[in-house]
Design a protein around this nucleic acid. Structure first.
Lengths: 197, 197
DNA sequence: ATACTATGTGAATAGTGATTCACAATTGAT
DNA sequence: ATCAATTGTGAATCACTATTCACATAGTAT
């Protein structure tokens, strides 16, 4: 038998491994047997730490929320110029999705259709938290006089999301052949120009 | 026993019902029992018309390809002004997705992660066919001198997609509360301005 | 009318994956 | 050292769906 860990530590490990599985292969790639194996347990052992698979998925969602908002914050702190901040966020976001293609697929598609409204609500919190941070950056840009004041920060934040979302789709269906960097280099200047004062 | 139909007619009916199920509840909402019930059959009866569920899903993908490209063409014929064409396409696209939220979820997420490359290839054809049509509209706009010539039509087409994609996500996670029309009215002018000469 | 093919049915089968359970080993506290 | 709670194990079970199969019926051509 393995060494005993502080309460909650194993939950954390399990959640992180579940996230890793989700990130690589989507929700269908997360199964109890594989997850147990990854954390050095036998399938039934998982149930000492979680009541059900559903509970695990919820924990994973919390972890995603945590990470997504934290790197949005990091991007905001990377510079004082709002465009630099957004640019940095795009880069981080794209890099994150490159390495974890299963996350958007889960958040933007599977979780959304969950019959449990609890789960949809959680996803909503994730997305809105992210959008709020983007909107905040834009708002500050307006205060600084760098961004035209006749655009609504929230609307622009949604467009920002639209800058990124298609990249993942195209990258995935082309088996990685789609030129994400190239597309970003073409669309980003247009986006900036659109917002610039 | 029901009346006999012309060969292929039942396949068509089954495929359409499967699409309807997919459109409402995503791929997980498509099951043989429910599908059989919808077309007035017992589950095993489905297998008189399709070899497997996979084959049904493939047929559904073909149907989606058909519909998507046909309404992209309709939009292109709706006007001669490229912006009117695109605007019309946005409206059609959004309306279509409002009524069939499961389609983008399937095309943009689940099918993409399919282990079968055949299926990914099919999705790729759908998306690229759509993008090609949008790019064509933009190209003509450039020839007409209405759209600035320093943007690449393909890149702009991807951005166009980005205009629409977030709407579905937001609409779905907010249980329909998200103001799709409002967002469109705010983002569309910005998009037009960005492309206008 | 006969025979052949296509279609439909109900029951059984199979495969996958989550979950339960009785039992064993470990840990921490007293 | 002992006890109780926690964690781990292996086997069994459950739930859900797709799928198969032997049999029945309807349509169609001869």
């Amino acid at each position: 038998m393995a060494a005993k860990l502080k309460t909650g530590a194993k939950q954390r490990i399990i959640t992180e491994q579940a996230l890793a599985m989700l990130a690589k292969h989507g929700l269908s790639g997360v199964n109890i047997a594989g997850l147990a194996h990854r954390v050095g347990l036998v399938p039934s052992g998982i149930y000492r730490h979680f009541k059900s698979k559903d509970e695990i998925v919820d924990a994973v969602l919390n972890l995603i929320l945590e990470r997504l908002t934290s790197f949005a914050d990091e991007a905001a702190e990377a510079s004082v110029d709002p465009f630099d901040q957004l640019r940095s966020l795009v880069q981080r976001h794209v890099a994150m999705l490159r390495d974890n293609p299963g996350i958007p697929s889960f958040v933007f598609a599977e979780a959304i259709f969950s019959s449990q409204s609890r789960r949809r609500a959680k996803v909503r919190r994730i997305v809105e938290s992210y959008l709020a941070r983007v909107a905040r950056i834009i708002e500050r840009g307006q205060e600084l006089g760098r961004i035209r004041s006749d655009v609504e920060p929230k609307a622009a934040a949604v467009m920002f999301l639209g800058l990124i979302q298609p990249l993942i789709v195209l990258r995935q269906i082309t088996d990685g052949a789609f030129d994400v960097r190239g597309q970003t280099e073409r669309s980003w200047p247009l986006f900036v120009e659109m917002l610039k004062k």
